[in-house]
Amino acid sequence: MIKIDKILNILLRLIDASKVTISLTIVAALLASVIAFISGILLLNRHKIIRFLVRTYVEIFRGTSLLVQLYWIYFVLPFFSVELPKFTAGVVAIALNYGAYSAEIVRAGFLSVPKEQIEAAKALNFTPSQKMRYIIFPQAIRIMLPGLGNQMIELIKGTALVSLIGLEDLTYSGVIMRTNDIADTFIIFILILVIYYAISSIFASGFKLLEKRANVGRA
C-alpha cells in the first residue's frame, strides 16, 4: 500500500530530525545537572550572601517562563553583543531553566540525609570529601532521582520550544513538513508525538533503572 510507504517515509524524515532534539536534550541535561548540583549545594552554604544570590537565580528562572527566557536570550542578548547560535541559545535557556528547578531537588536530597549518618562518618574519621562521596551522596541521590527523573521528562518536552526560534529540531521539521503536505497533518503530528513519547520513555526507564540501583538494600 502506498499509504504505508508514505508513513514510513515521513517517519524516517522525522527520525532524522530528532537527532537535533536528542543532542539538544543530552547537552542541555548535562549542563542542567551541573548547574543544579552546584546551585543545590550552594543553597546550603553557610554564607547568607551566597545563598541569597543562588536563591535569586533559582527564583528568577522558576518564576518566569521558559519561552520568555529563550526569547530573551535569543532576541535580547544580541543587543548586548552576545549573539548565540540557535542551538546554543536553546541549550543555555533550557539548562538554566531546568537547572533552577532541579537545584531545589538537589538541595532537598542533601538535606534528607540524616545527621546521624554524617556523625557516623565523622566517627570513622572520613575526610570531608570522602564523607561526601561515600556516605552523603549515595544516600542523597536516592532521594533526588525520582524528582530528577521527572525534570528530565519535562526537559525533553521543553526542547520543543526551540522550534519557535527556528532551530530545526523534530518539532520544527514536522511543522515544515506539514505545510508541504497539508493532507498528512494528522499522521505527521501523531508520529511526532510518538517519537517524543519514545524518547521520554527511554529516559524515564533509564531513571527507573538508576532508582532501582540506588535503592539496593532498602525495604
Partner: peptide
Amino acid sequence: EFIRRTPLLIQLFFLYYTLPS
C-alpha cells in the same frame, strides 16, 4: 502517560491543525 510524556507545544499544533479536518 502518553499526554504527560509528550510536549504541550505539539499537542497544541495537533489540536490546532487537525481539529478543522
